[in-house]
Computed example of a mutant assay.
Amino acid sequence: MSRVRDYSPLDTPVRSALDGAHSRFRVTHGNVAGYQRDVAPFIAHPLLMADDDWADLAALGGPGVTLPLIELENPTPPSGWRLVSQFGLVQMTGELFATAPEPDATRLGRSDVPDILDLVARTKPGPFLDRTIELGTYLGIRRDGRLIAMAGERMHPAGWTEISAVCTDPDFRGEGLATRLMRAVGAGIVARGETPFLHASAANVGAIRLYTQLGFDLRKESVMTIVETPRDA
Protein backbone atom coordinates (compact mmCIF):
# COMPACT_ATOMS: atom_id res chain seq x y z
CA MET A 1 0.00 0.00 0.00
CA SER A 2 1.51 3.33 -1.04
CA ARG A 3 1.95 6.02 1.59
CA VAL A 4 0.69 9.55 0.92
CA ARG A 5 3.44 12.04 1.65
CA ASP A 6 2.65 14.33 4.57
CA TYR A 7 1.67 17.85 3.57
CA SER A 8 4.38 20.49 3.80
CA PRO A 9 3.94 24.27 3.54
CA LEU A 10 6.47 24.01 0.70
CA ASP A 11 3.88 22.11 -1.35
CA THR A 12 1.93 25.38 -1.69
CA PRO A 13 4.39 28.08 -0.63
CA VAL A 14 2.40 31.02 -2.00
CA ARG A 15 -0.80 30.02 -0.23
CA SER A 16 1.03 29.15 2.99
CA ALA A 17 2.78 32.53 3.02
CA LEU A 18 -0.43 34.44 2.27
CA ASP A 19 -2.30 32.51 4.96
CA GLY A 20 0.42 33.32 7.50
CA ALA A 21 3.40 35.66 7.56
CA HIS A 22 2.32 37.60 4.46
CA SER A 23 -1.41 37.81 5.18
CA ARG A 24 -1.20 41.63 5.24
CA PHE A 25 -0.32 41.59 1.52
CA ARG A 26 -3.15 39.20 0.54
CA VAL A 27 -5.88 40.02 -1.96
CA THR A 28 -8.54 37.39 -2.70
CA HIS A 29 -11.21 36.75 -5.30
CA GLY A 30 -13.12 33.47 -4.96
CA ASN A 31 -10.72 30.51 -4.82
CA VAL A 32 -7.78 32.59 -6.03
CA ALA A 33 -5.50 34.75 -3.89
CA GLY A 34 -2.40 36.79 -4.60
CA TYR A 35 -0.09 39.48 -3.36
CA GLN A 36 -0.93 43.14 -3.71
CA ARG A 37 0.06 44.09 -7.23
CA ASP A 38 3.07 46.27 -6.36
CA VAL A 39 4.47 43.70 -3.88
CA ALA A 40 4.78 40.44 -5.84
CA PRO A 41 3.10 38.74 -8.84
CA PHE A 42 2.62 35.30 -7.27
CA ILE A 43 -0.76 33.57 -7.17
CA ALA A 44 -2.30 30.89 -4.94
CA HIS A 45 -4.72 28.97 -7.13
CA PRO A 46 -6.36 25.54 -7.46
CA LEU A 47 -4.06 23.13 -9.26
CA LEU A 48 -6.92 22.18 -11.56
CA MET A 49 -8.55 25.44 -12.63
CA ALA A 50 -12.30 25.40 -13.31
CA ASP A 51 -13.99 28.08 -15.42
CA ASP A 52 -15.00 29.97 -12.27
CA ASP A 53 -11.38 29.94 -11.07
CA TRP A 54 -10.17 31.44 -14.35
CA ALA A 55 -12.86 34.12 -13.99
CA ASP A 56 -11.71 34.81 -10.42
CA LEU A 57 -8.11 35.08 -11.61
CA ALA A 58 -9.07 37.53 -14.36
CA ALA A 59 -10.96 39.66 -11.85
CA LEU A 60 -8.07 39.56 -9.39
CA GLY A 61 -5.40 40.42 -11.94
CA GLY A 62 -7.25 42.89 -14.13
CA PRO A 63 -7.08 43.16 -17.93
CA GLY A 64 -3.88 42.39 -19.84
CA VAL A 65 -1.83 41.41 -16.77
CA THR A 66 0.86 38.72 -16.84
CA LEU A 67 0.65 36.20 -13.99
CA PRO A 68 2.84 33.20 -13.00
CA LEU A 69 1.04 29.98 -12.02
CA ILE A 70 2.96 27.11 -10.41
CA GLU A 71 2.03 23.44 -10.97
CA LEU A 72 -1.09 24.17 -13.00
CA GLU A 73 -2.60 20.83 -14.05
CA ASN A 74 -4.58 22.27 -16.99
CA PRO A 75 -2.12 24.77 -18.44
CA THR A 76 -4.15 25.69 -21.53
CA PRO A 77 -6.09 28.82 -20.54
CA PRO A 78 -9.61 29.60 -21.79
CA SER A 79 -10.44 31.66 -24.86
CA GLY A 80 -9.35 35.26 -24.49
CA TRP A 81 -6.33 34.39 -22.38
CA ARG A 82 -2.78 34.19 -23.74
CA LEU A 83 -0.30 31.48 -22.82
CA VAL A 84 2.94 33.46 -22.57
CA SER A 85 5.44 30.74 -21.68
CA GLN A 86 6.13 27.61 -19.69
CA PHE A 87 9.36 26.44 -18.12
CA GLY A 88 10.65 23.97 -15.57
CA LEU A 89 11.14 25.08 -11.99
CA VAL A 90 13.06 23.43 -9.16
CA GLN A 91 12.53 23.89 -5.45
CA MET A 92 15.54 23.32 -3.21
CA THR A 93 15.83 23.22 0.58
CA GLY A 94 18.82 24.31 2.63
CA GLU A 95 18.87 22.20 5.78
CA LEU A 96 22.64 21.77 5.27
CA PHE A 97 23.31 25.30 4.00
CA ALA A 98 26.14 26.86 6.03
CA THR A 99 25.17 30.40 7.04
CA ALA A 100 27.40 33.23 8.23
CA PRO A 101 27.14 36.99 8.82
CA GLU A 102 28.61 39.29 6.17
CA PRO A 103 30.40 42.37 7.57
CA ASP A 104 30.33 44.20 4.23
CA ALA A 105 26.56 43.84 3.87
CA THR A 106 24.05 46.53 4.76
CA ARG A 107 20.30 46.15 5.13
CA LEU A 108 18.43 47.65 2.20
CA GLY A 109 15.29 49.73 2.69
CA ARG A 110 12.79 51.90 0.86
CA SER A 111 15.38 54.52 -0.06
CA ASP A 112 17.44 51.83 -1.82
CA VAL A 113 14.62 50.66 -4.11
CA PRO A 114 15.71 52.75 -7.15
CA ASP A 115 19.21 51.24 -6.95
CA ILE A 116 17.73 47.76 -6.44
CA LEU A 117 15.47 48.10 -9.47
CA ASP A 118 18.44 49.26 -11.54
CA LEU A 119 20.53 46.24 -10.47
CA VAL A 120 17.61 43.87 -11.06
CA ALA A 121 17.03 45.29 -14.53
CA ARG A 122 20.66 44.57 -15.44
CA THR A 123 20.94 41.12 -13.86
CA LYS A 124 17.36 39.72 -14.12
CA PRO A 125 17.23 37.51 -10.98
CA GLY A 126 13.42 37.44 -11.12
CA PRO A 127 10.55 39.82 -10.44
CA PHE A 128 11.19 42.70 -8.06
CA LEU A 129 8.54 45.41 -7.72
CA ASP A 130 8.24 48.74 -5.92
CA ARG A 131 7.20 47.14 -2.61
CA THR A 132 8.95 43.75 -2.80
CA ILE A 133 11.38 45.15 -0.24
CA GLU A 134 8.58 44.75 2.35
CA LEU A 135 8.55 40.94 2.08
CA GLY A 136 11.57 40.44 4.33
CA THR A 137 15.21 41.29 4.89
CA TYR A 138 17.26 42.34 1.85
CA LEU A 139 21.01 42.77 2.14
CA GLY A 140 23.33 44.51 -0.29
CA ILE A 141 26.99 45.32 -0.87
CA ARG A 142 28.03 48.70 -2.25
CA ARG A 143 31.29 49.90 -3.76
CA ASP A 144 31.85 53.66 -3.94
CA GLY A 145 28.15 54.08 -3.26
CA ARG A 146 27.08 51.78 -6.09
CA LEU A 147 24.91 48.76 -5.28
CA ILE A 148 26.78 45.83 -6.81
CA ALA A 149 25.20 42.75 -5.22
CA MET A 150 22.16 41.78 -3.22
CA ALA A 151 20.10 38.90 -1.84
CA GLY A 152 16.97 38.78 0.25
CA GLU A 153 13.88 37.01 1.56
CA ARG A 154 10.70 36.47 -0.45
CA MET A 155 8.01 33.91 0.41
CA HIS A 156 7.54 32.88 4.04
CA PRO A 157 5.62 29.61 4.24
CA ALA A 158 5.30 28.37 7.80
CA GLY A 159 8.71 27.32 9.13
CA TRP A 160 10.57 28.32 5.96
CA THR A 161 11.90 31.44 4.22
CA GLU A 162 12.77 31.70 0.54
CA ILE A 163 16.10 33.23 -0.44
CA SER A 164 15.58 35.30 -3.57
CA ALA A 165 16.78 38.26 -5.66
CA VAL A 166 20.33 36.90 -5.60
CA CYS A 167 22.30 38.95 -8.11
CA THR A 168 25.66 40.57 -8.76
CA ASP A 169 26.62 43.38 -11.10
CA PRO A 170 28.43 41.81 -14.11
CA ASP A 171 31.48 44.01 -13.41
CA PHE A 172 31.96 42.37 -10.00
CA ARG A 173 31.23 38.71 -10.62
CA GLY A 174 33.77 36.10 -9.56
CA GLU A 175 34.29 37.56 -6.09
CA GLY A 176 31.76 35.31 -4.35
CA LEU A 177 29.55 38.25 -3.37
CA ALA A 178 26.29 36.45 -4.07
CA THR A 179 27.30 33.45 -1.97
CA ARG A 180 28.37 35.69 0.91
CA LEU A 181 25.06 37.53 0.83
CA MET A 182 23.10 34.28 0.61
CA ARG A 183 24.91 33.03 3.70
CA ALA A 184 24.16 36.29 5.53
CA VAL A 185 20.47 36.20 4.61
CA GLY A 186 20.41 32.55 5.63
CA ALA A 187 21.91 33.45 9.00
CA GLY A 188 18.95 35.68 9.74
CA ILE A 189 16.53 32.95 8.67
CA VAL A 190 18.15 30.31 10.86
CA ALA A 191 18.27 32.75 13.81
CA ARG A 192 14.46 32.89 13.65
CA GLY A 193 14.28 29.10 13.85
CA GLU A 194 13.34 28.73 10.17
CA THR A 195 14.96 26.91 7.25
CA PRO A 196 16.06 28.50 3.96
CA PHE A 197 14.72 27.32 0.63
CA LEU A 198 14.79 28.67 -2.90
CA HIS A 199 13.45 28.29 -6.42
CA ALA A 200 15.41 28.29 -9.67
CA SER A 201 14.70 27.76 -13.32
CA ALA A 202 15.39 24.14 -14.24
CA ALA A 203 17.35 25.44 -17.22
CA ASN A 204 19.76 27.38 -15.00
CA VAL A 205 22.07 24.43 -14.46
CA GLY A 206 24.95 26.63 -13.33
CA ALA A 207 22.94 28.13 -10.48
CA ILE A 208 21.55 24.73 -9.48
CA ARG A 209 25.07 23.30 -9.40
CA LEU A 210 26.19 26.17 -7.17
CA TYR A 211 23.22 25.78 -4.82
CA THR A 212 23.92 22.06 -4.55
CA GLN A 213 27.55 22.76 -3.66
CA LEU A 214 26.35 25.19 -0.98
CA GLY A 215 24.25 22.50 0.68
CA PHE A 216 20.83 22.86 -0.93
CA ASP A 217 18.98 19.68 -1.91
CA LEU A 218 16.44 19.26 -4.68
CA ARG A 219 13.01 18.85 -3.13
CA LYS A 220 10.76 18.84 -6.18
CA GLU A 221 10.46 19.79 -9.83
CA SER A 222 7.44 21.59 -11.21
CA VAL A 223 6.33 23.74 -14.14
CA MET A 224 5.80 27.49 -14.14
CA THR A 225 3.07 28.63 -16.52
CA ILE A 226 2.96 32.32 -17.43
CA VAL A 227 -0.43 33.56 -18.64
CA GLU A 228 -1.84 36.91 -19.64
CA THR A 229 -5.36 37.80 -18.55
CA PRO A 230 -7.88 38.82 -21.25
CA ARG A 231 -7.34 42.38 -22.32
CA ASP A 232 -11.05 43.08 -22.41
CA ALA A 233 -11.71 41.66 -18.93
Rank of each mutant, 00 (worst) to 15 (best):
P114Y: 11
I163G: 04
A184P: 08
Q86G: 13
R180E: 05
R209M: 06
W160T: 03
F172R: 04
Q86M: 15
W160Y: 15
R107D: 01
A98I: 14
S201I: 11
D115R: 09
D115Y: 04
E102D: 15
A200C: 09
R192V: 02
I133L: 09
G176I: 12
M150I: 07
I116L: 12
L119D: 08
G176M: 08
D118A: 15
I189T: 08
P157Q: 04
I141P: 00
V185H: 03
I133Q: 06
G193M: 06
E102C: 15
E134D: 15
I148S: 09
G176A: 04
R110L: 11
R154K: 13
S164K: 07
A100R: 15
P101Y: 05
Q91M: 10
L198P: 02
A151S: 12
V90M: 05
E153F: 05
L214W: 07
C167W: 00
M150R: 06
F197Q: 00
G206S: 11
T123V: 13
L108E: 11
P101W: 04
V113H: 11
A191Y: 12
A200H: 05
G88W: 07
T137A: 10
S164P: 09
A207R: 11
M92K: 01
I163D: 03
A191Q: 14
L139P: 05
N204W: 12
G176H: 04
G174N: 04
E102S: 07
V205D: 15
L117H: 03
L89K: 10
E95D: 14
L139K: 02
A100P: 05
F172S: 10
T93N: 02
V185K: 02
F97V: 01
E95R: 14
T132R: 01
L181Q: 12
Y138N: 10
R107F: 00
D130F: 01
A200D: 03
H199L: 11
D115V: 04
R180H: 07
